[in-house]
Amino acid sequence: MTLPNWITFSRLLGLPFLLYGLYNPTPTARWVCLAIFLVAAGTDWLDGYLARKLNQISDLGKFLDPLVDKLLVLAPLLALIELGQVPAWGVFLILARELAIAGWRVNQTTITGANIWGKLKTVSQIIAIALLIAPLPEVWKIPSLVAFWVCVTFTLISGAIYILPQTNSD
């Protein structure tokens, strides 16, 4: 397994600590959760950069990276549902898109990397989750929810763009 693939896999190690910390109501615990989340999200950029720089792009990496990204996004969102910070139906839309794309990818003969819409989706999800995890003052509640709905919108758009051009060419 290549270094970029190990870095991708390492993102999973922070998830149990992140989820445990989200259930601790102290501001300090939430800041620690934010730091864990941002470090894990930052390694998403790092593994891609190293894979390209070291010429270690692999089918395993193309498969593993989006899978770990999904877990990194969905795990805290599911916890945020339970904490009453986001509506379940919004997270369901994200989950449905991710499952649909994963199922669609299974039938593809080649695995492609993310396009610009997939990258926008990921960045918007990271921003929204970071705002929702951080113990910000009440004035940030609406901007955090707006960021959440922007990420839901980008998630759905990127899913449609991912599938529609491919179905038209068949």
Rank of each mutant, 00 (worst) to 15 (best):
M1A: 15
N5R: 11
T8N: 13
F9N: 13
R11S: 03
L12P: 10
L13P: 05
L13D: 01
G14T: 11
F17M: 13
F17I: 03
L18S: 10
L18P: 08
L19H: 08
L19S: 12
Y20D: 11
L22P: 09
Y23H: 10
N24Y: 05
P25L: 06
T28C: 06
A29V: 11
A29N: 07
W31Y: 14
V32A: 14
V32W: 14
C33V: 12
C33T: 12
A41V: 10
A41P: 13
A41G: 14
T43S: 15
T43P: 11
G48Y: 07
Y49A: 09
L50D: 08
L50A: 09
A51K: 11
R52F: 05
N55S: 10
I57M: 09
I57G: 06
S58E: 05
D59H: 03
G61R: 02
F63E: 07
F63I: 12
F63V: 14
F63G: 03
L64S: 06
P66D: 03
L67H: 03
L74T: 04
L74Y: 00
P76N: 03
L77K: 05
L77F: 07
L77Y: 03
L78Y: 04
A79C: 01
A79I: 00
I81R: 08
G84A: 04
Q85V: 03
P87M: 10
A88K: 11
F92V: 15
F92N: 11
F92A: 15
L93C: 15
L95P: 10
A100N: 06
A100E: 09
I101L: 15
A102E: 11
A102R: 05
A102S: 13
G103Y: 05
R105M: 10
Q108R: 13
Q108P: 04
Q108K: 13
Q108D: 05
T109L: 13
T109G: 08
T110V: 12
I111N: 08
I111V: 15
T112N: 09
T112F: 10
G113T: 05
G113L: 02
A114V: 04
G118H: 01
K119H: 01
L120Q: 00
K121I: 08
K121N: 10
V123K: 03
I126P: 01
A128H: 01
L132E: 00
L132R: 00
P137V: 00
P137Y: 00
K141T: 13
S144K: 01
L145Y: 01
L145P: 03
V146Y: 07
V146L: 12
W149R: 10
C151S: 15
C151K: 04
V152D: 03
V152F: 02
V152R: 04
T153K: 05
F154T: 14
T155F: 09
T155L: 10
T155E: 06
L156Y: 06
I157V: 15
G159P: 13
G159Q: 09
I161N: 08
I163P: 07
L164T: 12
L164H: 09
P165S: 06
P165F: 07
P165Q: 05
N168I: 07
